[in-house]
Design a protein around this nucleic acid. Structure first.
Length: 825
RNA sequence: GCCGAGGUGGCGGAAUUGGUAGACGCCCGGGACUUAAGAUCCCGUGUCUUUCGAGACGUGCGGGUUCGAUUCCCGCCCUCGGCACCA
C-alpha cells in the first residue's frame, strides 16, 4: 500500500475533472435543476479561509445533490467594483481595473485548489461593460417608472477632500484619508424609491420561501412600518400649523409641549425676539455635531424654548413649542408632541426643563396619581383625564376609537410611516457603474437612450482629485452631445453604489454571453428560482433586502415571474483566528488556506471546515482539529488493507450500521448539519476498523458517502478498487454504466433500506424516582408487554436494592425506552 | 436602550413533540511496537467521595411544573452580532 500523500493525488484529479468537463452544466436542460448560490466575492487578491468556509462547505451539498441525480448549477463570480481598488490605485499607482483583473485571475487559481464543482463557464464579473450595462438598463427602467429620482439628503462630507464619505470611512468623526473633521451636508444624490416597495418587502408570518426567522424579523424591523396619525396643531396667534406624527394618539389629552427638530422649517418663524439668540446658538451647535454625536453619544436630552405656543386641537390647551436635537428632521414630520405622563423620553425632557406633566394613562379608571418618577410613567393601562374616553383600556379599545373620533372632527389623519429610507446610490467615485444620465444646457436632465448603453467607464482619469468626482477629470468623456437636441451637454460624473451590482447578479449567471437581454428568457423562467442561497448574516439589512426589491421590480416590468428569488437562505458563520479574534493582517492571525492545503491537502481542509461546528458558528480556527480530520482520512486510506470481496460476511449488525449511517449522512447534509454528518462517518470508520475484514458493499458505501466531503482521496481510492465494484457477485461482465461514468462523483448516492434500520434488541432504562438504576436488554417481541418488562426490571438485584422496604406507587413504561418506578420514602 | 442569537467537560461541539447528558474530534494520561524519536495501534479520560461493588453532584444563576427538565414556565446574570433617541 502506498502512503496517503494529498499533494500527489489532488492536482491530478482536479485536472482530470476539468478535462472531462465533469461539472459543466447544460443550462438548456432544466430538468431536476438545482441552483446552488453562494454570495459572490470581492476580488481583494487573496482567497482566505473564510472563502473556503463559504464555498467549500456548500460544495458538499452540491456534490451530494449531483450524486442524487440533480442537475446542479453552482456558479461563481466576482463583485468587482468598489473602494479597495480605488485605494490601491491611489496608494500604489496601479489602475483599478488592472488591479482587479489580476486579483481575479489569482483568486480563480486559488479557487480551483478547493476542488469545488464550480461552473466557471458562467462566471460573472461586475466591472465589465457587458455586466454593468444592465445596471444602467435597470436604472433607466426605474427612472421611467419614477422609481429613480434626484433628491437631497444629509451625507458625511469631508470639506478637505470635497467628497461624500461612507459611514465606514468616517473614523471617530474624522475623514479616514486626511483626518479632517467630517460635517453633515445636504447633497444632491440619486435615489431608488425602495420605500414604494416597503409593504411588499415586509415578510408575512408564514412566507412561501424558507428564510430564517431572524433575517425576516430583522428586515421587518428595519422597514419599520408603523400605523399612526398626523395631528395638526394651530400655532397660537399665527396662521402657521404644526403637523406632528404619533403612533399613540390615545395620549393626545396628555400633551403639554411640542418639540421641533432644529431643521424644521417653522423654527425661524416661531422663535420670538427674546429667544432668538438662544435658538440660533442651539441650532449652530447642533450643526457642528455629527449624526453620531446627536444620536448615540449624547444620552442627555437638550433643547430650547422658542417663545411660541400652539393649541392642542382636542381640548384647546396652549402648550409651549421647543426645539431639540433628539427630534430628527427626516423622520415623521420633524415634530413630536410631548406626552411626559406616558412616554419615558418625554418625561425625562419635561423633568429637566420643568414642563407640566399630566397623567392620561393610569392603573385604574380613577387613578389620578401624580407622575413624579420614571416608574410612575405608564405607556399602557386605563385612559384617564381624557374627557369621553376615560375608562378605556389602551391600546386595544382606545386607540382606534380616538383615531376615528379625531378623523371625524378633522383634528388628524391616519398615516402609515416607514423607517426605511429611499436608497441613495450616488457615489463620488471612479470604480463603479456610471449613472446613465446626461445634463443638457437646453433639455435639462436627459436619460441616455437604451441603444447607447453601456456608458463605458473611461480608463484615463485622476482618481484622487480635490473638489470633484474622479470622472469629472475625463473631459473627453464628460462632454457629449445631448441625445435629445444635439446641443452641448455633460455626463453625470457620479457612479452607482456597488450594492446595485449585487442586487441581480444571480440572473446574469444564467447567461452572461447573451448581450441582447439581461439573461435568456427561458432560463429566467426555468432556472431562476435559487434553490438554496448561502451567505453572511451581515447582509440581512443590505444585500438581501436590496436584491428582493430588485426582483420585485423586475417582476413588475415583466422580466421575472417571481416575487422572491431564493427558496431557502442559509447563513454561514465566521472563522476567527487561532487567538479567537477576527482574522486581520494587522493582528497577524490570518490562516492562509493555501499553506494549509500544502500541509494537509484540500480534502482535510474541507473536512475540517465541515466538522468545526454548526455551519452558522463563529469559532476560532483550531490547528488540532485539522490533525483530527487528517488522521481520519489516513485511517480511511488504510482501510483498503481490510477490504474483502466476500460480501457474505456482512452480519445483521453490519447492515444495520451501514444503513443507519447512510440515513444519518444523507439527512444531515440535506439539513446543513455537516458536522454531525462527519461525526457519523467517523463513528462508522471506528466500527469498520474494529472488524477483521470490510465487505465490498461497506467499503464502496463509505467511499460514496465520503465523496462530497473529500472528493480527491475518495476518487483515488475508487480508482484503485473500482474493478471490484463493477463485477457483481456472480462474476458478470462489468456494467456499461460504470465504465462510462468512470469517476466516483458520477455514481449514484447510496440509498438506505428502512427495513434494515429496525433494531432486534432494545435497551430499556430502569429508573426509580427519576434516577437511572439499571439497564435491561429486551427482544423486539417483548417491547409492548409492560407487565413482562416490569417483572424483568424487578428481578434486577440493583433495582431490588432500591425497592426493598418501599411500596411502588406508580409505574411508568415508555415502550422500548424507559421503565420508571415511583416509590415513597 | 431596543432587536436578534447564544451560555453544556481542559477545548470545538453532540443530544431538545421532556426519557441513560457529554456522540464525534482535539488535548491529556497509561500501554504496545521501536535501539530511540516520530508515526501507528490499543486502553482511559465531567467533578467529588469510595470499602473499587458503587454513591453523590453536574448543562450560566434562582425558583416552579413533572415519576423524570440541557429541553417547558417565571424571574435574573453574562457573552456575541445588529441598530434607529423613530415620536
Amino acid at each position: 500500500m502506498k502512503k496517503y500523500i494529498p499533494s500527489q493525488i489532488e492536482p491530478k484529479w482536479q485536472k482530470r475533472w476539468e478535462e472531462d468537463k465533469l461539472y459543466a452544466v447544460d443550462l438548456d436542460k432544466p430538468k431536476k435543476k438545482y441552483y446552488l448560490l453562494v454570495e459572490f466575492t470581492y476580488p481583494s487578491g487573496d482567497l482566505h479561509i473564510g472563502h473556503w468556509f463559504a464555498f467549500a462547505v456548500p460544495d458538499v451539498l452540491g456534490r451530494m445533490k449531483r450524486m442524487q441525480g440533480y442537475n446542479v448549477f453552482f456558479p461563481n463570480g466576482f463583485d468587482a467594483f468598489g473602494l479597495p481598488a480605488e485605494n490601491a490605485a491611489i496608494q500604489r499607482g496601479v489602475h483599478p481595473k488592472d488591479w482587479t483583473i489580476s486579483n481575479i485571475e489569482n483568486m480563480r487559481k486559488q479557487f480551483t485548489l478547493m476542488g469545488a464543482i464550480h461552473d466557471w463557464n458562467n462566471q460573472v464579473i461586475t466591472c465589465l461593460p457587458d455586466y454593468y450595462k444592465w445596471n444602467q438598463w435597470i436604472f433607466l427602467k426605474m427612472l421611467k417608472k419614477g422609481l429613480a429620482y434626484k433628491g437631497k439628503a444629509l451625507a458625511n462630507w469631508c470639506p478637505s477632500c470635497q467628497t461624500v464619505l461612507a459611514n465606514e470611512n468616517v473614523e471617530a468623526g474624522k475623514c479616514w484619508r486626511c483626518a479632517t473633521v467630517v460635517v453633515q451636508k445636504e447633497v444632491e444624490q440619486w435615489f431608488l424609491k425602495i420605500t414604494e416597495y416597503a409593504d411588499r418587502l415586509l415578510w408575512s408570518e408564514k412566507p412561501d420561501v424558507d428564510w430564517p426567522k431572524p433575517i425576516r424579523e430583522g428586515q421587518n424591523n428595519w422597514i419599520g412600518k408603523s400605523e399612526g396619525m398626523d395631528i395638526t396643531f394651530q400655532v397660537d396667534g399665527s396662521k402657521d400649523r404644526i403637523v406632528t406624527y404619533t403612533v399613540f394618539p390615545e395620549t393626545i389629552f396628555g400633551v403639554t409641549y411640542m418639540v421641533l427638530a432644529p431643521e424644521h422649517t417653522l423654527v425661524e418663524n416661531l422663535t420670538t425676539k427674546d429667544n432668538k439668540n438662544l435658538v440660533k446658538n442651539y441650532i449652530k451647535k447642533t450643526k457642528s455635531k455629527s449624526e453620531l454625536e446627536r444620536t448615540s453619544l449624547e444620552k442627555e436630552k437638550t433643547g430650547v424654548f422658542t417663545g411660541s405656543y400652539c393649541i392642542n386641537p382636542v381640548n384647546g390647551k396652549k402648550v409651549p413649542i421647543w426645539v431639540a436635537d433628539y427630534v430628527i428632521g427626516t423622520y415623521g414630520t420633524g415634530a413630536v408632541m410631548g406626552v411626559p405622563g406616558s412616554d419615558h423620553r418625554d418625561f425625562e425632557f419635561a423633568q429637566k426643563y420643568d414642563l407640566e406633566i399630566i397623567r392620561v394613562i393610569g392603573k385604574s379608571a380613577d387613578d389620578d396619581s401624580p407622575v413624579k418618577n420614571q416608574s410612575d410613567v405608564l405607556e399602557e393601562g386605563i385612559i384617564v383625564n381624557s374627557a369621553q374616553f376615560n375608562g378605556l383600556t389602551t391600546p386595544e379599545q382606545a386607540r382606534d376609537r380616538i383615531k376615528d373620533w379625531m378623523e371625524e372632527k378633522g383634528y388628524g389623519k391616519r398615516k402609515v410611516q416607514y423607517h426605511l429610507h429611499d436608497w441613495s446610490i450616488s457615489r463620488q467615485r471612479y470604480w463603479g457603474t456610471p449613472i446613465p444620465i446626461i445634463y443638457c444646457d437646453n433639455c435639462g436632465t436627459v436619460p441616455v437612450p437604451e441603444k447607447d448603453l453601456p456608458v463605458e467607464l473611461p480608463y484615463q482619469v485622476d482618481y484622487a482629485p480635490k473638489g470633484k468626482p474622479p470622472l469629472a477629470t475625463a473631459d473627453d468623456w464628460v462632454n457629449v452631445k445631448c441625445p435629445n437636441c444635439g446641443g452641448k451637454a455633460k455626463r453625470e460624473v457620479e457612479t452607482m453604489d456597488t450594492f446595485v451590482d449585487s442586487s441581480w447578479y444571480f440572473l446574469r449567471y444564467l447567461d452572461n454571453q447573451n448581450e441582447g437581454e439581461i439573461a435568456k428568457d427561458k432560463r429566467l423562467t426555468d432556472w431562476i428560482m435559487v434553490d438554496i442561497y448561502f451567505g453572511g448574516a451581515e447582509h440581512t439589512l443590505g444585500h438581501t433586502l436590496y436584491s428582493r426589491f430588485f426582483v420585485k421590480f423586475l417582476k413588475d416590468i415583466g422580466i421575472l415571474k417571481l416575487e422572491e428569488y431564493a427558496k431557502k437562505r442559509v447563513h454561514h458563520g465566521v472563522i476567527l483566528g487561532p487567538d479567537g479574534a477576527r482574522m486581520s493582517k494587522s493582528r497577524g492571525n490570518v490562516v492562509n488556506p493555501d499553506a494549509q492545503v500544502k500541509e494537509f491537502g484540500a480534502d482535510t481542509v474541507r473536512l475540517y471546515l465541515c466538522f468545526i461546528g454548526p455551519y452558522d458558528i463563529v469559532a476560532p480556527w483550531n490547528p488540532g482539529g485539522m490533525h483530527g480530520v487528517y488522521h481520519f482520512l489516513q485511517r480511511v486510506w488504510g482501510l483498503q488493507e481490510k477490504l474483502t470481496i466476500n460480501d457474505e460476511r456482512l452480519t445483521m449488525n453490519d447492515l444495520r450500521m451501514m444503513h443507519k449511517i447512510i440515513k444519518k449522512v444523507t439527512e444531515d447534509i440535506e439539513n446543513i448539519k455537516f458536522n454531525t454528518a462527519v461525526a457519523a462517518l467517523m463513528e462508522w470508520l471506528n466500527y469498520l476498523s474494529g472488524k477483521e475484514k470490510v465487505g465490498r458493499e461497506e467499503y464502496k458505501t463509505l467511499l460514496l458517502l465520503l465523496a462530497p466531503f473529500a472528493p480527491h482521496i475518495t476518487e483515488e481510492l475508487w480508482q484503485l478498487v473500482r474493478d471490484l465494484f463493477t463485477v457483481s457477485s456472480n462474476n458478470d461482465e462489468p456494467t456499461n454504466q460504470l465504465t462510462n461514468n468512470w469517476s466516483i462523483h458520477q455514481q449514484s448516492w447510496p440509498q438506505f433500506d428502512k427495513k434494515l434500520l429496525e433494531e432486534e434488541e432494545f435497551t430499556v432504562v430502569v429508573q426509580i424516582n427519576g434516577k437511572v438504576r439499571d439497564n435491561l436488554m429486551i427482544q423486539k417481541d417483548m417491547i409492548n408487554r409492560k407487565k413482562a418488562v416490569e417483572n424483568l426490571a424487578k428481578q434486577s438485584p440493583k433495582v431490588q436494592k432500591f425497592l426493598q422496604g418501599n411500596t411502588v406507587k406508580k409505574t411508568i413504561y415508555i415502550p422500548g425506552k424507559i421503565i420508571s418506578f415511583v416509590i415513597s420514602n
